[in-house]
Amino acid sequence: MPLGIFAFFATLAVISALGVILQRSPVHSLLALIVTLLCVAALMIGLDALAVGLLQAIVYVGAIVVLFLFVIWLLNLERDPEESGRLGIKLLAAVGAAALVGELTAFLTRTHMSQQTVNSDYGSMAQLAGLIFGNYLIAFEVTSLLLLVAVVGVVAVARRWPSPRLANRPPTLSAKPQT
């Protein structure tokens, strides 16, 4: 990937990542997150990882982000109220993040990495599938078990149990549709 295109996508990714954490409205944060994810997907494709980049665009932006949107819509979230009086944790977060970036940058600038040349089928779905159903077959099968457990767990957690605490609260999620 040429340096100019990399700089464009990297700048856009960083700006929109800042938008994710700095905006008050969760929906705006989510839109910024979509831009970041698409930029990262473009960078992945630029690194010859075509299949994974497309998976990133489809699975993340198409499924996970829509799940977030669904929950924001279900909870009817408005803008966050202004937070105040938590300067200490913000200062600590800024210092910690700056230290993390400084440390990693110090490592990266001192490391010399040569880039190997790769075949034309590098990062293709065929090569990926050969690895997944070869060396990583056990991990792949365990993943299916993980997904099954997650489905059962989510249904158990998010199910509406009859709760006496909710009896004297204003109805929100349990409100019946007005017909």
Binding site: M1, F6, A10, I21, L77, A93, A94, A97, T109, T111
Partner: peptide, 27 residues
């Protein structure tokens, strides 16, 4: 050709931004 170090630096920056988000946001 972009050096690999630039990608790693971008990854570090995005990770740090995510860390700050976890620390400062209450939503």
């Amino acid at each position: 050709m972009t050096p690999i170090n630039y990608y790693l630096g971008l990854g570090a920056l995005l990770f740090a931004i995510g860390t700050v988000g976890v620390l400062i946001r209450r939503n």
